[in-house]
């Protein structure tokens, strides 16, 4: 994880809501932008476990590429608690590790495109202040699918796959909403870190 630790965390900008301080046991001690290896490692482990859990859930509706995107829950939480740059590192690290553990190189390619695009869009959406957690998560779900289908079109060199786009748009918004609900509930119960 050397790559991860070299990153200088940027101070979090434009944090919308006040952070609850005075919870000494909470990792991070109230400063949203600080990088804490232990905290980061815990989130990365959580993301990896969710990647694995997702392979266990037979959530298959007949269309390839439709997945629950459970790990996006961790990414959304990280985005809100620690800011975009740490969430980006988390996303990339989890794609690489999960890819080598459960997938292959091409699945890394797809996940990386989807993960990076969705994270950038989610960070942008959050920054506008016009979206709640649900909306940010829906943005992530949809753009994740768009990123993957773009890679698929480049790999297969066929535009015909765009036929899946409407289905993937709808599935992205649905799974994004589910993840958004979950993220909002988790955030209510987590001590403000």
């Amino acid at each position: 994880m050397g790559e991860v630790q070299e990153r200088r965390p940027e101070p979090e900008e434009g944090q919308g809501q006040g952070r609850g301080r005075g919870q000494e046991e909470a990792p991070g001690g109230g400063n949203g932008g600080r990088f804490h290896p232990a905290y980061f490692g815990m989130y990365l482990a959580l993301a990896l476990i969710l990647s694995y859990v997702e392979t266990l859930i037979p959530f298959y509706v007949g269309i390839p590429g439709v997945k629950l995107g459970l790990t996006n829950l961790v990414i959304v939480l990280m985005l809100y608690d620690r800011g975009a740059s740490q969430a980006l590192v988390l996303s990339c690290a989890r794609v690489l590790l999960a890819g080598f553990l459960f997938g292959n190189l091409s699945s890394i390619l797809y996940s990386m495109a989807g993960g990076v695009l969705s994270l950038l869009c989610m960070a942008g959406a959050r920054r506008t202040g016009k979206f709640s957690v649900y909306g940010v998560s829906m943005v992530g779900g949809v753009t994740h699918n768009i990123g993957q289908i773009l890679v698929a079109m480049a790999v297969v060199e066929s535009v015909g796959i765009a036929f899946y786009l409407p289905v993937l748009l709808v599935s992205g918004v649905v799974t994004g909403a589910l993840i958004g609900v979950a993220a909002a509930e988790v955030r209510k119960r987590l001590p403000r870190a």
Partner: peptide
């Protein structure tokens, strides 16, 4: 849900329907 959430939801579903 904020207003932007609903707009995004409607926009995506609309785009999917049109496509």
């Amino acid at each position: 849900m904020k207003k932007g959430d609903w707009i995004w939801l409607a926009a995506v579903l609309g785009a999917a329907a049109v496509l």
